[in-house]
């Protein structure tokens, strides 16, 4: 259990973290979501007592981090890949950490085995790839067999196999009753792993909700139609009292409408339909909408949407989301129309 109370961090005039209060409960994966620069890493560093908060406090199982006898036995953290001395072997890097917290030497072998680095245990860690460095960081987090685990952007730079492995690891650790706190700027990633969601933007708490509630509240459903007679269809729909939005490729979209009624309407007026489908907007969109005002670094390239700084793989359209393409999961399929649909003019 982690309790964050009124946590604030100010750098000069800039408020990086603004009175954050939330709790991270055991037994579930809690996602910590926010755009780049939202203050996620700063918050995590303050949770580990690495950065001094301007005000507020963090309690780990009811204690300040400072007062934990052997902190690695309570909370393990992956903050950045390669936060290890490159000239030291993987084994020795872990051994130094183990010794400082009175963790037996055999545990080093155990965690190396868990993350699949046994074969390179005696290799210097500066030769490690990003993925191997990430695994070594996870090994160090697991070293003290802690009840609380914290991962800062663990899937960054990993290949699909590594991403899959981390997801399953986090779920398995949560299932053992541990507290898992994982940050990400990718909603699609969170949708696959997190049970609970804490969303921040510009250091402020935007949402603290279960994943199921977030999905329920934020996924917009709409109907999508295409017809060779678009003008007629549009008039008919408007006469029937629907607010019609024009999407790309000659498609029309109607929020919250039922496809049955639309099909009947088209038939009554003898309009040919090439497509009539129920759609849902992606969570990525809901997330971007929520954080739109708080995104710090907008990309200003030709009509880019808020949150346009998300890197490829942001899970926003199938053509941009290799990790989704490999792991068909929810979020996929029904967001095709969404991307264009958002900036369409009302007609």
């Amino acid at each position: 259990m982690i309790e964050v109370e009124g946590l604030t961090k100010r750098y000069g005039r800039k408020l990086a973290v603004d009175h954050l209060s939330f709790q991270v409960r055991p037994g579930v994966v809690t996602g910590f979501l926010g755009p780049n620069g939202a203050g996620k890493s700063t918050t995590m560093r303050m949770m580990l007592d690495l950065d001094n908060p301007t005000s507020g406090s963090v309690r780990i199982n009811g204690q300040g981090y400072h007062d934990l006898p052997d902190p690695l036995k309570h909370i393990g953290a992956l903050l950045e890949a390669k936060a290890m001395h490159g000239g030291r072997t993987a084994y020795n890097n872990l051994l130094c950490l183990a010794q400082s917290n009175r963790i037996p030497r055999r545990r080093v072998d155990e965690v190396l085995d868990m993350v699949g680095l046994t074969a390179v245990a005696k290799k210097k860690s500066k030769g490690f790839s990003l993925g191997m460095g990430q695994r070594l960081g996870i090994a160090s987090a697991l070293l003290g067999n802690p009840e609380i685990l914290m991962f800062d952007e663990p899937v960054n730079g990993l290949d699909p196999e590594g991403i899959h492995w981390i997801r399953n690891l986090m779920k398995a650790l949560a299932a053992e009753g541990r507290t898992i706190f994982v940050s990400s700027h990718l909603m699609s990633e969170m949708a696959l792993t997190a049970d609970h969601l804490i969303v921040i933007g510009q250091g402020r708490l935007l949402a603290n909700t279960s994943m199921a509630d977030f999905i329920h509240q934020n996924s917009r459903s709409y109907a999508r139609l295409r017809s060779p007679q678009p003008e007629q269809l549009r008039d008919v729909l408007r006469d029937a009292g629907y607010a019609v939005t024009e999407a790309g490729g000659g498609a029309l979209e109607i929020d919250g409408a039922e496809t049955e009624r639309l099909g009947e309407l088209a038939a009554e007026h003898r309009i040919v339909l090439h497509e009539l489908s129920a759609q849902r907007a992606s969570l990525e969109e809901a997330f971007m909408q929520m954080t739109a005002e708080s995104v710090e670094y907008h990309a200003h390239t030709g009509g880019e949407e808020p949150g346009g700084q998300l890197p490829p793989g942001g899970g926003w359209g199938p053509e941009q989301a290799p990790q989704q393409a490999q792991q068909p999961a929810w979020g996929q399929g029904w967001n095709q129309g969404g991307r264009d649909g958002r900036r369409d003019k009302e007609i």
């Binding site: 560093r45 580990l48 007592d49 690495l50 981090y65 400072h66 934990l68 902190p71 690695l72 953290a77 903050l79 950045e80 390669k82 936060a83 290890m84 001395h85 490159g86 000239g87 950490l97 400082s100 917290n101 160090s140």
Partner: peptide
């Protein structure tokens, strides 16, 4: 200095917060 150049300092201080 190697603690700082490698980023190891954060791992070290998380392990030994005093």
């Amino acid at each position: 200095g190697s603690e700082y150049s490698s980023g190891m300092i954060r791992t070290s201080l998380a392990a030994v917060p005093r």
